[in-house]
Structures are given as structure tokens and as C-alpha cells.
């Protein structure tokens, strides 16, 4: 067996493992409402984008999503704006999240690739379950593309693209983080 190939495989597995561990920790922070600590995982130059989805003819996929920086998007913002959302929840009078929802973030199908020494491109599927007050329940399911920047023995999220597989949003709001 080619030792070089093994080394490359091992590196990829270790990277995938590191990213999966990072996502598990991130999900835990969000699901246990440690929002301030979650903010520490976001790079100052974060872009956080969730487009709308259009119904388009087969093959016309270029126009399937609303454009970042130009069209309407469910989210198209940076860390400052995310910080405001966290602050809003922590006022205790953000009625859409007061009482705070119960959430469970599931992340699977993780693929990670080192773009260079500093940057990792990661892709995954997500299932975000939300239950609030008594019976209100939402499932948000889709794909996520992240750009992670190495930071010590962990990562900072510098870009998060969130592709929620819905046309008409079935949840009344988007008060949770993806």
C-alpha cells in the first residue's frame, strides 16, 4: 500500500472528525442556550446567508435561489446582526422566544476539505427541531455549506450558507440559529 495515500486519507479523516466535533460542540451550545459562547465560534467577518427557494423549470438551477447581496433572503447578514439577535433573546421580552424554544440541532453527512492551511470548506445536512410552549413544533431541514477558519485547535465560522428546503416557509418565524 502507498503510505502517502494512507497519510492523505488519515488527514482527511482527522479533518472530518475535527469538523464533526466542532459541529457537535456548536449544536450543544445552541441547544443549551449558551448563545454568548456560541457567538465566540463566529468570526468577526462572518457572512450568514439563507436564500429563498424558487420553483424553476428543470435545469434552470442558476435561478433557483435568491441572490446574496442583491435579492430578498431570509438571512443576509454579518456577526453584528447575529449579535443583535442574541441580545434580543436575552432581553427576556422577545416574545417570539419567551419562553425560549426547545431546540435540537442534528448535523450529518459531513464532508470537509482543506482549501489551504487556514481554511476548511465543510458541507453537511441539518435537521433542526424546534418545540415551543406546548405543542408548537417546527422541522427545519436542509443543507449547509460552511467556510471554517482554523483558530488554535478549533475553528471560527467565517461563512455559513443555509439552504432550507422550503418554498413557502412553513414555520411562523426564524428565531433560532442554523
Amino acid at each position: 500500500m502507498d503510505i502517502g495515500a494512507d497519510k492523505a486519507l488519515l488527514d482527511r479523516l482527522l479533518l472530518k472528525h475535527a469538523v464533526e466535533q466542532f459541529y457537535a460542540r456548536e449544536a450543544d451550545l445552541l441547544d443549551s442556550r449558551r448563545f454568548q459562547q456560541w457567538l465566540d465560534l463566529l468570526a468577526d467577518d462572518l457572512r450568514y446567508w439563507m436564500p429563498l427557494n424558487y420553483n424553476r423549470p428543470f435545469g434552470a438551477w442558476d435561478g433557483e435561489r435568491s441572490a446574496e447581496g442583491r435579492d430578498l433572503n431570509w438571512f443576509d447578514e454579518g456577526k453584528f446582526e447575529i449579535e443583535q439577535r442574541v441580545k434580543q433573546i436575552m432581553t427576556g421580552v422577545h416574545w417570539a422566544e419567551e419562553p425560549v424554544s426547545r431546540t435540537t440541532h442534528m448535523v450529518s453527512n459531513v464532508e470537509a476539505e482543506a482549501a489551504d492551511d487556514a481554511i476548511v470548506e465543510a458541507r453537511c445536512r441539518f435537521l433542526l427541531y424546534r418545540n415551543r410552549t406546548e405543542t408548537e413544533t417546527d422541522f427545519y431541514v436542509g443543507k449547509r455549506h460552511d467556510r471554517l477558519r482554523r483558530s488554535g485547535d478549533s475553528f471560527l465560522i467565517t461563512r455559513r450558507e443555509i439552504f432550507l428546503d422550503q418554498n413557502v416557509l412553513l414555520a411562523k418565524n426564524l428565531t433560532t440559529f442554523f
Partner: peptide, 17 residues
């Protein structure tokens, strides 16, 4: 506008609740 109104908007979220 994206951050004001609609389901991701900081203002209308509380209205809908």
C-alpha cells in the same frame, strides 16, 4: 427590511407570536 419584517425580522417575529 430583511431584518425588520418577515419571519426573520426582529420586529414582526414578536407580532406573530
Amino acid at each position: 427590511v430583511i431584518r425588520y419584517q418577515g419571519p426573520s425580522g426582529l420586529t414582526e417575529q414578536d407580532d406573530m407570536e
